[in-house]
Design a protein around this nucleic acid. Structure first.
Length: 768
DNA sequence: GAGTTTGAAACT
DNA sequence: CAGTTTCAAACTC
């Protein structure tokens, strides 16, 4: 029997305990009405978004060498589970399964019922008897066992055990006696906010192609649950590498947590990503939930003494050990995530997960140094902005910053970034607060496929509960991140594009083989031009700087603001569109959303059902431009005006001769530009090549380049030789063709003589 | 680069 | 909701 090392055991339980504590702090007492489904924030600081928090359990799997974590649906479904290691299985997506959490519900990943999968010992240990493992089974199945149980203290755990067959794993449970607030009574799980802890124990892993499907399934389930069940406050997953455990020395454990919660400004962040290392390294695998509408807020390190928020107490040796973080990416519809990890003994790291398409993908990790001020980040040439979300903790931060970044994206294998080698490519904003998770309800399935994924909205990061924007209007994949300088609470909605930016950035190179580049339908949609700009292309070109002077860049007049971007390298004056003015910015965003809930949604999207062409959501209102100038938003977006437009004298329709002419001219101009660019490039290349090739001649030929031997005198002599040939041909009455040939031959001889002379002397002479 | 035109956003 | 004003980008010279 494998037993998790004491260090590991102590970690996991502690984390859970801590998380519980956080939940307690954030949630009203059990007797409070809020406990029964209405997740009310703290009494004095309600957060509107709290109500929008979907009761979707988040799972974070921690694996050592395992591929990205995977969400699977277990229990009542036939979806294979356990296809990969570090897979957390949630059964709370349906009322039925949710209720099963009240006591003990054992479900194997392979849909097998475990007769006695675990034992809850009196000393707060869960002993997993992996009797369900099927050694010879398909790797995509039968490797996981999921156990849901309620500890004597009331804590609910979902344990997914993936390990070697017949090797029970013991997980130390925390003492929950004082955590009554989070205790869920039997049968209450359904009504009360779900506080799940998902623990994944794994020993090996494989990524199965089933993951995407499974994830998708889960996603759907989550959507449903968003509006029907109480919010899941916490999901915690811990993966244990059995192999490493056996070795006792190289156990690579990852403990991550992610909290879906709404929290008031005064409410401490709920959770989060934990990382620990019992052995040589630690990895954090963040299992992405594919819900396109889900907002994931990661708690930002807020190491306030006595803060209710909890961090996993990591082994002391962890500070100087390599930390690896795995962020799994799933699909294009996956929400972007910003995850930061921290602990009192661990250097915080900032992680950004990029939304993408396709199978599992990885993430980007930014180790956090110990920044002292708020900074926003923008990668040169990138269309997106980065913000530093995490502040250093009081932990023993080591020289993680400054290490080179190692990033990659893999479809089947998660990229593992060793933060010890990560270079801080972007500044990290110190956060004084924990991160919040504010899932975004999915308004419609079609929404996911629209160009809304292009939207980049950065929400206020201030503690302004009264002006919390309507998150339902935020684009899928939006991530709420704590904002610096905003006290203990704040939001910074980071669009999934930030992640995209990361992957496209020179700072972070992601494998192109990942789903990001997969030309799937979703991806294609995501690449649709936004206001005339292709996101794929625009992402690589520098964002056009704004020139706002009076709007403070807090009105939609400002393209930066309208696109949810911070101003960076702009020409604006009195700009408030930055992190330093998050409060004002938050108000502005709120105002915009009040005026128009669709304000930050892409104007160019798909038309009505069945219409394939893009169209302007509102339509233009042009009067004088004929909709054939960039004043017209339709024309600017290179789309036809539609019935929704209220333009006068519109010429921007399919059969418009004016439009066709303009298009032809534009195409021709574009071709010319491309040709010129290509010519310049080629010329530059040739010149460069010439200079390179002639360099030896310079050093060996007395400092003169070959072409310098073609002096005026040489040219004149050459011409005389050619003329002589012409005269001879004329005298001999040779045909023109022959004459030309003679001239050319003579020219060739001249050249050869020049070359020959150049090799002998600096003053070549040519004689016909 | 300055000035004008334009239409969306903001305001009333 | 319509009319007006404000604003910044697009455009012209």
């Amino acid at each position: 029997m494998d037993v998790v090392s004491p260090e590991l055991n102590s970690l996991l339980p502690d984390e859970i305990m801590d998380t519980e504590a956080i939940i307690m702090d954030d949630d009203p007492p059990a007797e409070s009405p809020a406990a029964s489904g209405q997740s009310q924030p703290s009494d004095d600081s309600p957060v509107p978004m709290e109500m929008d928090v979907p009761a979707v359990p988040e799972i974070v799997s921690l694996c050592s060498d395992a591929p990205p974590t995977q969400l699977t649906q277990a229990g009542t479904t036939s979806t294979p589970t356990g296809s990969t290691l570090c897979t957390s299985t949630l059964t709370s997506t349906t009322p039925k399964t949710t209720s099963s959490l009240s006591r003990v519900s054992l479900t194997s990943g392979g849909l097998q019922k475990l007769s006695a999968p675990f034992t809850l010992s009196a000393n707060h240990q869960i002993i997993l008897n992996k009797v369900a493992s099927s050694p010879g089974a398909d790797t995509t199945r039968s490797q996981g066992t999921t156990t849901t149980t309620t500890t004597p203290g009331g804590q609910q755990f979902m344990v997914t055990a993936i390990g070697k067959s017949g090797q029970p794993i013991v997980l130390q449970l925390p003492h929950t006696g004082s955590k009554s607030a989070s205790v869920q009574g039997l049968g209450e799980a359904k009504a009360n906010p779900q506080h799940f802890k998902v623990v994944t124990v794994s020993s090996a892993s494989q990524v199965s192609t089933l993951q995407a499907q499974q994830l998708k399934t889960v996603q759907i389930a989550k959507k449903t649950q968003v509006s029907s069940a109480g919010p899941i406050k916490f999901v915690f997953t811990k993966a244990v590498n059995n192999k490493g455990l056996t070795a006792q020395t190289s156990v690579s454990n990852v403990i991550t947590g992610r909290v879906l919660s709404t929290s008031s400004p005064v409410t401490p962040p709920r959770t989060i990503t934990l990382s620990e290392t019992l052995g040589s390294s630690s990895k954090i695998a963040i299992s992405p939930l594919k819900s396109p509408s889900k907002l994931t807020v990661v708690s930002v390190a807020s190491q306030v003494p006595n803060s209710p928020q909890k961090s996993v107490s990591l082994p002391l040796n962890m500070a100087h050990l390599g930390h690896q973080i795995l962020l799994q990416q799933s699909t294009a519809t996956s929400p972007a995530k910003v995850v930061s990890t921290h602990s009192t003994t661990m250097k915080p790291v900032q992680t950004v997960t990029v939304g993408g398409v396709g199978a599992t993908q990885f993430k980007t990790i930014f180790p956090l140094s110990t920044p002292s001020n708020v900074q926003q980040i923008q990668v040169p040439g990138s269309r997106f902005h980065y913000v530093r979300l995490v502040t250093a903790t009081t932990g023993s931060s080591t020289g993680h910053a400054g290490s080179p970044i190692t990033n990659s994206s893999m479809t089947a294998k998660p990229m593992v970034v060793n933060t010890t080698q990560v270079r801080m490519s972007v500044p990290i904003v110190p956060a004084q607060t924990m991160k919040q998770v504010v899932p975004k309800p999915l308004t419609s399935s079609g929404q996911v496929l629209t160009t809304q994924t292009q939207q980049r909205l950065i929400m206020p990061a201030t503690s302004l509960p009264q002006i919390q924007p309507n998150l339902t209007n935020l684009p899928p994949g939006t991530v709420l991140a704590p904002a610096p300088g905003s006290g203990n609470m704040g939001y910074a909605v980071l669009p999934a594009q930030y992640v995209t930016q990361l992957q496209q950035s020179a700072y972070v190179t992601l494998a192109s083989s990942s789903g990001f580049s997969t030309p799937t339908g979703i991806q294609t949609q995501a690449r649709l031009p936004l206001n005339g700009l292709s996101t794929s292309g625009a992402a690589f070109r520098p964002r056009k700087p704004c020139n706002c002077t009076k709007s403070q860049c807090l009105k939609l007049y400002c393209d930066c603001f309208a696109n949810g971007e911070f101003c960076q390298n702009c020409n604006c004056t009195n700009c408030f569109n930055n992190l330093e003015h998050e409060t004002d910015r938050a108000k502005a965003i709120k105002a915009c959303l009040d005026r128009n809930p669709e304000a930050f949604k892409p104007k160019i999207g798909k038309g009505k059902e069945g219409e394939s062409d893009r169209r302007h959501s509102k339509g233009c209102n042009c009067k004088r431009s004929g909709c054939l100038k960039n004043y017209c938003e339709c024309y600017e977006a290179k789309i036809m005006c539609s019935s929704t437009c209220k333009c006068v004298g519109c010429k921007n329709f399919e059969e418009s001769p004016e439009r066709k002419t303009l298009m032809h001219l534009a195409d021709a101009a574009e071709v010319r530009v491309q040709q010129q660019t290509a010519a310049k490039t080629k010329l530059s290349s040739q010149i460069s090549d010439l200079l390179t090739r002639t360099t030896p001649a310079i050093t060996s030929g007395g400092g003169r380049m070959p072409y310098t031997f073609v002096t005026k005198e040489v040219a004149e002599v050459t011409c005389e030789c050619l003329l002589e040939q012409a005269e001879q041909a004329e005298l001999n009455q040779q045909p023109q063709a022959t004459a030309e040939r003679m001239i050319l031959e003579e020219f060739g001889r001249c050249l050869m003589r020049i070359i020959s002379s150049a090799g002998k002397t600096d003053c070549p002479s040519i004689n016909c």
